[in-house]
Design a protein around this nucleic acid. Structure first.
Lengths: 151, 151
DNA sequence: AGTATACATTTCGACATCGAATAATTGGAG
DNA sequence: CTCCAATTATTCGATGTCGAAATGTATACT
């Protein structure tokens, strides 16, 4: 005897958009992440962590947290794995020894320079299911939704 | 000496929309999941797994996989945890003993009936950062993006 | 100087997630 | 009827993710 949750029209409209939003992100990840893993052995988090020092130069782990919007403990784990694989290197800040500065190694830079264009190209191709103006509109709506501090 | 990856205008536009899309989903989850965990002890996956037999009645694990778009091994894990907590119950199909049918227990149904309205209300409030027509447009764009089989 | 407070990171335990390998069961081909 | 191929679920090992507690370091106050 399945019971159905009765929502108001307003709730149904919101849920509808919400579900489609989540599904679309799932679908994008399902298309983009397996090839990234297969071809370069990189996860989404790893490429995010590599990109930060690639674009910005050596970086404290705390800054890294804020850039990629993950918890401190998570960044520790991901950096551990990347360090083990020789793609980044940690160095204590000379002036504040609490801080770990994350440096890209040569191997890390090389790998990223091979992986990034392929990855970006795949994102571009996937996103091109939308027209340029649709991409802009999607971006605008997502931004409005994400930055709203509405209770 | 930070090296910057030079993208074409088309790539930059695609990445822009892509990043905003991902960020918005992150932001929504950051707002919705901690309260769900604190108030009801439920994760996103758990509520998804509970909802399926709630709406559809007892359900084979394989069907459940397809409903919530997760791997088989993942569904096994989440159902394990829910079963341990007494929220669902597994029963072997009488005619095909490979199949595990997932039933909601009374405790599971009770919990879901308390949690779901609160959760849906919070989703609705969060999504109301967008006007109704914006929600529709967001849904349309996400759907178009997610279902495109474009290479 | 000594202590208390604040801050950066790590550790720990729990859950989610995947793919590959395995086990159990079914159904069909011969 | 027997055996093989397909199907369903589980196990295993790896990664990511969080929050809470612990650790180490810096700084401010007395």
């Amino acid at each position: 005897m399945p019971t159905r949750y009765k929502g108001t029209a307003r709730e149904i409209a919101a849920l509808n958009a919400f579900i489609k939003l989540n599904r679309s992100v799932n679908a994008l990840q399902a298309r983009l992440l397996p090839p990234l893993q297969k071809e370069f052995g990189l996860t989404e988090s790893q490429i995010a962590v590599l990109e930060a020092p690639f674009h910005l130069g050596p970086l404290a782990q705390g800054e890294l947290c804020r850039k990629i919007l993950r918890s401190g403990s998570n960044v520790t784990t991901v950096v551990d794995n990347l360090e083990r694989d020789g793609l980044v290197r940690r160095e204590r800040d000379a002036h504040d020894r609490r801080i770990q500065i994350v440096h890209l190694t040569d191997a890390g830079r090389d790998l990223l320079m091979r992986a990034l264009p392929v990855h970006v190209e795949r994102i571009t191709r996937t996103m091109s299911a939308l027209e340029p103006d649709e991409q802009r509109e999607l971006g605008r709506l997502c931004r409005k939704l994400g930055t709203s501090t509405a209770v």
